[in-house]
């Protein structure tokens, strides 16, 4: 294999690693502006992660090895996912390893390990968080899968770069089912990244937590990895959204220096817009009661299924 693709692959992962906390910081900043608060620095997530890495890790006495290895696995899956999703370029070496379905499986792996780790110490909040996370996951995962399924039907492949390239080239045929999966995807993105209608990323009230409740027992470097992983997850979801709905500006064929240098500012632009949009959604909506969360996600799932039907009816023969 020529060195070019591998360098491009490494660059894509490096950009993801670097940009993910920044994106999170940007969303927080937008939220603060919209709420008329003084905004924290966009670099705050970096400082947090750095601070946490320097601290001593405190483990619960009855934590098992699973608890210690889980942050690395969760972080690892998110990094691999970042390598698969075409954020800067298509046709990268890792892309043949996993298509979009495998990507959903990768997210599921992270979720399962996160939940298992949360159950490991055996505190009330840990198991509560794990249960809620799995509840959200079991509806969000098929919804995401159906979103990808519809996109795959449109472009006759499940490889994400190929889907993205197809959608970018054939955009003059408006496929109405994209509207449905767009709605479904937005709902899934909010739920899977512990954003506001489902979970409040800034909450410190244990009873309403989902994601944070699972991390209660983590500290120091483990927590840093978990935080970084969740920032990466948000970034990854945003990039999946770009690949499906705004697929322009990804270096599909040209993965030389020129193509990549062009696609980085495009990505930055998309991220800035997406972060602003996310902040608006979070600001205007109120957190749902946890009992309403399944309804929210069932809607996402059913919207995606509806997209499938509409595609077969209208996009088809």
């Amino acid at each position: 294999m020529r060195p070019g693709p591998i360098v491009a692959q490494a660059l894509e992962i490096a950009v993801a690693l670097a940009a993910a906390p920044l994106f999170l910081g940007w969303v927080n900043q937008c939220r603060a502006w919209l709420a008329n608060r003084g905004a924290p620095s966009m670099l705050l997530p970096y400082r947090n992660i750095r601070k946490l890495f320097h601290k001593d890790a405190v483990l619960a006495e009855n934590a098992s090895p699973l608890f210690r290895i889980a942050p690395y696995i969760v972080f690892g899956t998110m990094v691999v996912a970042a390598g698969i999703i075409p954020s800067l370029a298509g046709r990268l070496p890792l892309v043949v390893a996993a298509d979009a379905i495998a990507l959903v499986g990768l997210f599921a792996t992270a979720r399962v390990f996160l939940s298992l780790a949360a159950m490991d110490v055996g505190t009330a909040f840990g198991t509560l968080g794990a249960r809620r996370e799995m509840m959200i996951g079991f509806l969000a995962e098929p919804a995401l899968l159906m979103v990808i399924f519809v996109a795959s039907l449109i472009s006759a492949t499940t490889a994400l770069p190929a889907i993205s390239a197809h959608l970018a080239s054939e955009r003059f045929t408006i496929d109405p089912s994209l509207a449905f999966i767009g709605v479904a995807f937005t709902l899934v993105l909010l739920a899977e990244n512990a954003r506001i209608p489902i979970d409040n990323p800034a909450t410190h009230l244990e009873l309403t937590m989902i994601h944070e409740a699972m991390l209660l027992e983590y500290s120091a470097r483990h927590l840093a990895l978990m935080e970084w992983a969740s920032a990466l997850r948000l970034f990854n979801y945003a990039c999946i959204g770009f690949a499906l709905f705004v697929p322009w500006g990804i270096a599909a064929r040209d993965i030389g220096p020129f193509g990549l240098t062009l696609s980085i500012p495009v990505l930055a632009l998309k991220l800035a817009a997406a972060g602003g949009g996310l902040a608006v959604i979070e600001t205007v909506s109120a957190k749902l009661r946890i009992m309403r969360a399944p309804e929210f996600l069932a809607s996402a799932f059913l919207f995606a299924v509806l997209g499938l039907l509409v595609h077969v009816l209208l996009g088809g023969a």
Binding site: P176, S177, A179, L306, V310
Partner: peptide, 10 residues
């Protein structure tokens, strides 16, 4: 038009 139809359904 198809897009409009789909939007109506949505």
């Amino acid at each position: 038009l198809n897009a409009c139809a789909a939007l109506l359904l949505l």
